[in-house]
Design a protein around this nucleic acid. Structure first.
Lengths: 237, 237
DNA sequence: CACAGTTTTCGCTTAGTAGTCGAAAACCCC
DNA sequence: GGGGTTTTCGACTACTAAGCGAAAACTGTG
């Protein structure tokens, strides 16, 4: 195990996603400097500091670009570590997924802007793969967690929620089914209020919110469950 | 963004799991040196080399301890980066899950040994958390992927498979149900052969294998699916 | 103010999948 | 051949998702 003691540099970066104008978009930053100048990359791409873990680091660095309070969710995606992922230096990256709810429009610096995830510009390094990974994670989790809370505003009608899910998933979902699936899981709760109908009329829509205590239901959907009935008699040997 | 240029050191390590004597066990190494000597830690804990990505690194380092060809599956878990996770140095770790199928018994060095995951000895640093993470990932994926291939031998009877699943999940599963769930997903295929019955007799069990092309079915189980029927007429606006 | 147009909501039905139970099948040994 | 043993299979139940259409609740117009 004769490893050289050369420590590799470590950056943290995040694909920040938001549903804007009914389309899932990612916040990208146009590189001005040296390698891959002009191309777009995920924000931020800061180095990991000596006294922080990667979660702190990404939040600290995001705070320089976006108001952190407007981030509804941040989670680790994966390590990207191909030796040649950057032409200039050897740099290992821990990538994150960041989500911004649709009702806010965070102020972002001049050199950053939003791009639809399915029409990305020329990206720097492996940032396209990172965005893809983020999109994939969001999609998967919409299916089996309550992560919808992180893309939706605090209160919403079912059809609004439907457009958010549709945008994030990339296909239209049925409002009826969405309503029922989420309701059954107990993650949706009616506020009692209704939203005023649009100018064309129509029945006023009931308002809902995601149930409190809600961050990440995850699990409880396992498919080979522990037995209920007592066939555990013939124990497993 | 005035980060110091001090690069942090980066290690890769793996929780290697195997079902042994009907119990899920993890391969641990007893530390001889400096910090936390005497405690048990995940193998290996080597530094990331300058010309390799983390996946290569973990396989290279595992190869020093276990025959890599006997590893049926390796996947990235998460980055562990708390500044104080080791008392001696600042070290960021990329943790992996490694799986060994039950029909092999890899030769391991003197200072390593297998331990049941639900009765771990005193572990070094944050290695208990890493093992827990690995166990959790395996459990979850048994539910919705074909990752069973990685803990089971190439051919097996349903009851054998059942004991493997039960050991890994931590509770007994029904053989009938396991059979059908996996069969429906098309991941199980009969070899046509049967296993000889035990000394007590009994109907000879049919042999199965995991269907080829099989690594990681993952997905295809999404719960808010794209619409089949044409209610996509009222497109999403 | 009745009526057409619109949007949401709800109930009914179908389909697909998981879990439980018990009986039949296929073997051993005596 | 009979008792004991293990596997396999079919039948039944339960639960959840999906699809469809009718009813509810509103706006605006003639």
């Amino acid at each position: 195990m004769s490893d050289s003691i050369t420590a590799v540099e470590h950056e943290v970066l995040a694909a920040v996603l938001q549903v804007r104008t009914h389309v899932l978009q990612v916040l990208l930053w146009q590189r001005a400097r040296k390698p891959d100048a002009g191309r777009w990359s995920s924000r931020p791409g800061g180095r990991l500091g000596p006294d922080e873990d990667v979660e702190h680091s990404i939040r600290r660095q995001l705070a320089e670009k976006v108001d952190v309070r407007q981030l509804s969710h941040v989670e680790q995606l994966s390590v990207f570590s191909a030796p040649d992922r950057r032409p200039d230096t050897r740099m290992v990256a821990t990538a994150f997924l960041g989500l911004v709810p649709s009702h806010v429009d965070p102020a972002v610096p001049e050199d950053t802007s939003w791009h639809p995830v399915d029409r990305l510009p020329e990206t720097a390094f492996d940032h396209r793969a990172i965005v893809e990974r983020a999109r994939g994670r969001l999609r998967a989790k919409l299916s089996y967690t309550n992560i919808g809370f992180a893309i939706a505003p605090p209160e919403f009608t079912i059809s609004e929620l439907r457009t958010h899910y549709s945008a994030a998933l990339g296909y239209t979902v049925s409002a009826t089914n969405l309503q029922r699936v989420l309701a059954r899981r107990g993650v949706l709760e009616p506020t009692g209020e209704t939203a005023p109908p649009g100018r064309a009329g129509g029945r006023p829509a009931a308002l809902f919110r995601f149930a409190a205590g809600g961050l990440e239901v995850t699990d409880q959907f396992a498919v080979l469950r522990p037995p209920a009935g007592p066939y555990a008699r013939s124990s497993v040997r």
